[in-house]
């Protein structure tokens, strides 16, 4: 009995680990399969990168999560429940191609979108004021949308996405069109949300952002999932055992004889070391040869490199 309870507990804990679970999702447009048996889990409270080249089927997947489209086959679970319309109020979606009604004022527009997500008029107004205050743009409340610059309306769109305090945020290229300062602001908000336990799906082409922001990623290409895992774990998985050693003085004779040198320049050498051996051994070798090592780094592949390699081999 006690054992069974323990199992149940573990099972529940495991189930509650992922906020969203996609199971064997298939979506077909005519002869074209936009999603081909795609399954993955999106863990709670994590920033999750959904990556893939153009036309890979990212938007189709996102549209099925936001219930704009429905899968032809497969299951989507939200918090362990079958995804249904009631969950859309718990999702905030910022599409890549986004816009606002030009003939409305910022305040009334945000309140409208908040109400469509199930907020009451007063609650929506309160939240709008809080967010405008947070971004120090309270004066925008009565501004016409047409008067906003692209960057300004991006901010308004971001507020619209988070206004109803959803547990799941889906951000498709959230930084496009933003200047570095506003990019930083939004990035900070995304991190804060994540710290508050919100789950974030982040879709982008800009890999350096993925590396900076995402905890886990899934890579899709031609409708199929081709890779998934934690960013750190993937870097380890795809590493090529390359080490970069910087030193003072000249290379001692014979030191590089048995090593696979990839690149060499004054005061620096990059070596591909055999897999069974750890980096420590390489460092030891250098020290034993009396080298004065100033820096020793394992070269891990960037997400960009992994991305390109995986897409090309697929």
């Amino acid at each position: 009995m006690q054992k069974a309870f323990l199992f149940l507990n573990i099972a529940l804990t495991f189930a509650s680990m992922s906020l969203l679970s996609l199971q064997h999702i298939v979506k077909q447009y005519g002869n074209y399969r936009a999603s081909d048996d795609v399954s993955f889990e999106i863990p709670k409270g994590k920033i999750f990168g959904l990556l893939g080249p153009n036309g890979a089927g990212k938007t189709t997947l996102i549209r099925m999560i936001t219930r704009i489209l429905y899968p032809d086959a497969g299951n989507i679970l939200f918090n362990g429940e079958q995804l249904s319309d009631k969950h859309t109020e718990n999702i905030g979606y910022m599409p890549e191609e986004r816009g606002l009604y030009k003939k409305m004022k910022v305040g009334e527009h945000l309140i409208y979108l908040g109400r469509l997500k199930g907020l009451s008029q007063t609650q929506a107004k309160e939240n709008v004021n809080d967010w405008l205050k947070k971004f120090q743009i309270e004066t925008w409340f009565n501004k016409n949308i047409e008067e906003l610059s692209k960057g300004m309306s991006q901010k308004v769109q971001f507020i619209a996405t988070v206004l109803h305090n959803p547990d799941l945020l889906i951000l498709d290229e959230p930084f496009s069109g933003l200047d570095p300062i506003n990019s930083k602001l939004i990035e900070q908000e995304i991190r804060d949300m994540s710290l508050k336990g919100k789950t974030i799906i982040f879709s982008t082409h800009r890999m350096e952002q993925v590396e900076e922001i995402c905890d886990e990623i899934v890579l899709v290409n031609k409708g199929k999932k081709i890779l998934e895992g934690g960013v750190k774990e993937l870097k380890q998985r795809f590493k090529e055992n390359k080490f970069n050693i910087q030193f003072n003085g000249e290379i001692k004779n014979g030191l590089l004889n048995n090593l696979n040198v990839v690149e060499q320049s004054a005061g620096e050498v990059t070596v591909k070391y055999n897999e069974e051996h750890r980096g420590n051994e390489l460092l030891k070798l250098f020290v034993e040869h009396g080298m004065e090592v100033s820096s020793f780094n394992e070269l891990l592949p960037s997400v960009n490199e992994i991305f390109i390699r995986q897409v090309e081999t697929n």
């Binding site: 219930r67 109020e89 979606y93 599409p95 816009g99 469509l116 997500k117």
Partner: peptide, 14 residues
């Protein structure tokens, strides 16, 4: 208008 200014995707997610 809704289609052109692309607000429709946000709306249909609600």
């Amino acid at each position: 208008e809704e289609k052109t200014n692309r607000i429709v995707e946000v709306l249909t997610s609600s």
